[in-house]
């Protein structure tokens, strides 16, 4: 019986160890949770992928993000999307309104919005323009872009941990979220769509910290 007890305790300990590794010490249960935790601990550098979009000369994504020392809240979309991207669009509109309503503030001036399309096939420049117009995106504050080359697009999605799966009806499901990039163009945080206020506050805080840094 003693052997059985020892064996059972060993089994429990091994199982506990495995579960604790998989869940990062029981903090997360999903791959998405692990990705967000990982990003918060270790900011992710971006590959220099070329992007294009209306009101934008061709440039690389890191270059765009580090422009004017701004903090960027970005999200992946496709313009035909009728589900989650619609609410993303309206959340971006709300954030734009919030940013515009106090332009006098140095902090707000330093936060930008960015929508990146992952559907290169359908989202050409006119489609992106229509999308931006429909949401009345202000070009100086909110860019709508796509990656110029397919391979680079895949690289970017992989690097940022964005998983896109076709649902068989011509639409896509993807782990939509709000990605916050610091002024060096690194992804520093991922927020849930529901946490958009928190994402905005966090971005403002980052921008504020940055402004404080340069003024001192």
């Amino acid at each position: 019986m003693l052997r059985t007890i020892v064996a059972s305790i060993l089994v429990v300990l091994i199982g506990w160890g495995a579960a604790s590794r998989i869940t990062c010490d029981f903090q997360i249960w999903t791959e998405e949770g692990a990705r967000r935790l990982q990003v918060a601990l270790h900011p992710v550098d971006l590959p220099p992928v070329f992007i294009e979009g209306p009101n934008l000369t061709q440039t690389t994504l890191p270059a765009l993000l580090s422009q004017e020392n701004s903090v960027t809240i970005a999200s992946f979309i496709y313009t035909r999307c009728q589900a989650v991207c619609l609410s993303l669009g309206s959340i971006f509109q709300q954030m734009q309104t919030a940013l515009l309503s106090n332009t006098g503030n140095a902090q707000t001036a330093n936060v930008r919005l960015l929508s990146i399309s992952f559907d290169r096939e359908h989202d050409d420049l006119p489609a992106l323009q229509t999308y931006a117009d429909n949401l009345s995106a202000q070009p100086e504050l909110w860019h709508v872009v796509r990656v110029s080359q397919t391979e680079q697009e895949q690289l970017l999605l992989r690097k940022l941990g964005v998983v896109v799966i076709p649902n068989g009806q011509g639409d896509y499901e993807h782990n939509a979220a709000l990605l916050v990039f610091d002024s060096a163009g690194r992804m520093v945080r991922i927020f849930d769509i529901e946490e958009h206020q928190l994402a905005l506050n966090y971005a403002l805080h980052l921008a504020g910290k940055h402004v404080a840094d340069t003024s001192s």
Binding site: T4, A7, S8, V11, V12, I14, G15, A18, A19, I22, T23, I28, W29, T30, E31, G33, A34
Partner: peptide
């Protein structure tokens, strides 16, 4: 007893969505 622990714990761990 120990065998059922093995089976039970393996299934419990494999049901974590991240796996």
């Amino acid at each position: 007893i120990s065998g059922l622990f093995v089976t039970g714990i393996i299934f419990a761990v494999l049901m974590i969505p991240r796996v």
